[in-house]
Design a protein around this nucleic acid. Sequence first.
DNA 1: TGACTATGTCACCATGCAGTGACATATATT
DNA 2: AATATATGTCACTGCATGGTGACATAGTCA
Lengths: 206, 206
Amino acid sequence: MAKRKQNTRDRDATKKALIEAVVSIALRDGLASLGVNAIAREAGVDKVLIYRYFKNLDGLYEAVCAKADLWWNVDEIVNQIDFTNPATALGSYILAHRQALLKRPLTLKVLAAEMTDRSPLTVALEKVREQRGNDVSQRFSARFPEMAGREAAVLIMANMLSAATQYLTVRSQDINLFGGMHIRNDDTWVEISDATKKSVQGLLAS
Amino acid sequence: MAKRKQNTRDRDATKKALIEAVVSIALRDGLASLGVNAIAREAGVDKVLIYRYFKNLDGLYEAVCAKADLWWNVDEIVNQIDFTNPATALGSYILAHRQALLKRPLTLKVLAAEMTDRSPLTVALEKVREQRGNDVSQRFSARFPEMAGREAAVLIMANMLSAATQYLTVRSQDINLFGGMHIRNDDTWVEISDATKKSVQGLLAS
DNA sequence: TGACTATGTCACCATGCAGTGACATATATT
DNA sequence: AATATATGTCACTGCATGGTGACATAGTCA
């Protein structure tokens, strides 16, 4: 398991090895398997160095957060959105959101873990997520100023569908069926996107 | 911590105490805190009796499942649904689903835990859930035969909103804000229900 | 060269865990 | 009353955990 030659005497390399060990274990065994012993073993480093360089486990987690790209950046999402009208925008947002999550396996693990535990990893994710979410809805309202305050229902549906996308994308790592939908299948998500588009269209027509 | 007088010599009482200890710990500390030592301590019983009476922890979990009311029964949901049209039906289903979940704190814990771990508790929940979900959609199509196969989009939206309701209800045990919605607030859920109704109306009008 | 510091190794502690075998005794059966 | 069985207690093993203190040595600075 030792991932580096011993007695390297390179503080930065040691810190890097520890940070990478956290990510490896989280992806392979889940956040619940993280601990000083396991991390040090994985990094091929003595556990006392975790305390010396990061003060404690939480300090190490914070360093992981600083290096990890835990959440999408706004442009990554906005670039994939079809802004021809609010309905197509929301429909394409669903797909973009799912893709952005699938690109970040660590994020999927953190999203799963935050259901039961709270750690620096989960709180870091909470913060950036709420921030970026606001950013995206600002872009929406900038593009569709006529919507301003007009349809609270659209905003609610956007939030609900975003929540469902997040939930089902995480779950699709383990299960394939939710209420009859094959949530691992890309075609399913195209159908979901289409249904979303239609339903927002109907909402605005009424 | 000892919850019962010692040396009772009552097998059924012992088994019951163990089952109740599992529930108590799960509710208080989460499923991750369950273990033979903790359970036996909580029940005021020697841990060897877990092995004797249930073979192992999984056997005990199965006994818990058999006694616990982990998921709503179909009528509990259907009775609260407004079947005047498909839109009102889905809108009221959201509220009924949330209420049924809130009534079952153990279920909320299991739903949270199944994101990261798989145990007899979670697989038991998976089974009954998929079953009852099918039952409910059968009731829907029985009431609205004209919908048969006509609008796949409605079915998809129903599944997505159901997923979002489940996710946000579990999350609302820990957080209050999701994308600007105050998910612990009952008024919010009335608005969600209304938005759902409107959007299904629009979907069917188109 | 000599002293000092940064880096890393190692041995240890107390605690908790899952699991097992030996024993004690209350209850039922003969 | 004597025996057998069901029920419960206790002591133990082996392992992993989080955490700490003592030591070894490479690199640096005076």
